[in-house]
Every structure is written in structure tokens, then in C-alpha cells.
């Protein structure tokens, strides 16, 4: 199956997968209503807004498979059409991601532009052996968001860079999206919810504990178990590098 086919069948299945999770959440925990609303939206969105017309005329729409190559090419040729194909892929996702973390629409958009500008400036340094393109963009966005949060309290700020470039390159097995999706789907709903809160909502352990009225220790152990399970899954096929 080509990467494109994979990607399209993946967008087909997101709503079903999310709906199942949503129902599971609902059955056991009525605090999840907002999560369910989010997923309903997602399902409707995916139905009504299929990727048609998303691509740029004259340029290949980017997908997660050829993004690595695209970013390397972008560093070499500095082609704006190529950049726009990367932009069209990431910008709407980054905007959702930032809004999930509490940015309002305008602020999210401003940060998306900043992140994408950083992609353009630094893609010459992008090394697909070190990280997948999406991970690289994810890091840029995460760091920009943290900087932005700090700026609001600049009087308190110490200029510590908590996310320096790694000194060593971990050997990573390319994450197989299908497998990872399966692994997440198999997590107990309480653990999946913790992962969701950490990654999508940017909540700290204590915020999660307070919100759900559970001991901090349980938040930590739930996340630990979830991570171990997901790691075990992605490690299943050694030898396959990024």
C-alpha cells in the first residue's frame, strides 16, 4: 500500500475510531462530554471536508510519508510552492493543536505563522536521520508555545532553554501510524484520557489530578503504564529506521 493510500484510509477511519473511544469514555465517565463533542465535530468535519481542493495547484500535496523528502528539498531549493504544500499540510493541524492548549484563534494563527516561518528558515538544518519531519515541526511548535507562555511573565523569566538540541541521536524505529493507532485504541480509557490531556490540552500532572479528583500518584502511574505500552508496541519491529 502506498503512503498516500495509507493516509487516506487513515483519515477515513479516524471518526470511527474516535467515536468508539468517545462512547467508551461516556459509558464510564460523564466528565468526558466535552471530549465527545470534540470527536463529534471531528467526525462531521471529516465527512464534510474531505481533502479535495486542499492541495495547491501545481504542487504535490504533502503527506506524512514524503514530508521528510519535501523538507530536505525545501532546504536545498528554497521553493515557495513546495513550502506552501508543507504549509497546507501543517498549518491547520498546528492551529488545532495550539487551540487545544488554550491559545485563542488569533494567537494560535500568529504562532502557526511563526512556526512555519521557522520551518522555512531552518529547514536547511533538518536531518531526516535525526527526526521525522512531523516530529521536527512538532518540536518547533511546542518550543514556540512555551516561549509565548513565558513572555506573558517575562519579569519572572530566566532565559533557560529547556529544549536544547539533543547531544545524541537516539536510534528510533519509525513509528508505524497504524500500529500506534491500534496501541492507543487498546489503552484502557482512563489511561488514554490521561495521554489526551497531556498532549492535547497541555495539562500538568497536578492540574489533571485536581480536575479529576484523583491522587497525583495515580496520574503519574497511569501515564507511566500508557507510555510503556505504547513504547512496547512501537518497538515491535526493530531494524526499521526512520
Amino acid at each position: 500500500m502506498s503512503v498516500k493510500e495509507k493516509l487516506s484510509c487513515y483519515t477515513e477511519h479516524i471518526p470511527i475510531w474516535f467515536m468508539i473511544r468517545a462512547l467508551l469514555f461516556c459509558v464510564k465517565d460523564d466528565k468526558c462530554i466535552s471530549a465527545v463533542y470534540f470527536m463529534m465535530h471531528l467526525a462531521i468535519y471529516n465527512k464534510t471536508m474531505k481533502p479535495e481542493g486542499k492541495g495547491v495547484e501545481g504542487s504535490e500535496p504533502a503527506d506524512s510519508g514524503n514530508l521528510n523528502r519535501t523538507l530536505v528539498d525545501l532546504g536545498k531549493y528554497r521553493d515557495k510552492q513546495l513550502f506552501l504544500s508543507v504549509y497546507d499540510y501543517f498549518a491547520p493541524r498546528l492551529k488545532s493543536h495550539l487551540m487545544g492548549r488554550g491559545a485563542h484563534s488569533e494567537q494560535a494563527e500568529e504562532l502557526v505563522q511563526e512556526a512555519m516561518l521557522a520551518v522555512w528558515k531552518h529547514c536547511g538544518n533538518f536531518n531526516p536521520d535525526k527526526a521525522a519531519a512531523s516530529t521536527w515541526v512538532f518540536r518547533i511548535t511546542r518550543n514556540l508555545w512555551i516561549d509565548r507562555m513565558r513572555k506573558d511573565k517575562s519579569h519572572l523569566m530566566s532565559p533557560i532553554d529547556n529544549y536544547p538540541e539533543p547531544t545524541y541521536t537516539p536510534s528510533l524505529v519509525a513509528a508505524d501510524s497504524d500500529k500506534l493507532k491500534q496501541a492507543i485504541a487498546r489503552l484502557p480509557q482512563s489511561q488514554a484520557q490521561l495521554v489526551y490531556k497531556v498532549y492535547y490540552e497541555g495539562k500538568t500532572h497536578r492540574e489533571i489530578a485536581d480536575e479529576n479528583n484523583m491522587p497525583l500518584g495515580s496520574v503519574k502511574s497511569g501515564l507511566r503504564l500508557a507510555f510503556e505500552k505504547l513504547r512496547a508496541f512501537t518497538k515491535a519491529q526493530p531494524g526499521e529506521k526512520l
Binding site: 470534540f38 498546528l94 493543536h97 516530529t135 537516539p170 513509528a175 501510524s177 505504547l230
Partner: peptide
């Protein structure tokens, strides 16, 4: 951390898209 970042990008890609 690198693995957890990989999970982060995966979850980010799974996210709904918000039009700019």
C-alpha cells in the same frame, strides 16, 4: 523523550484541522 515526541507528532497529525 524522542519516542514521546514521536507520539506527540502522531497525535498532532491525528488532530482535526482548523482552517486559517
Amino acid at each position: 523523550v524522542a519516542e514521546a515526541e514521536q507520539l506527540g507528532h502522531f497525535l498532532m497529525e491525528q488532530q482535526q484541522q482548523t482552517e486559517l
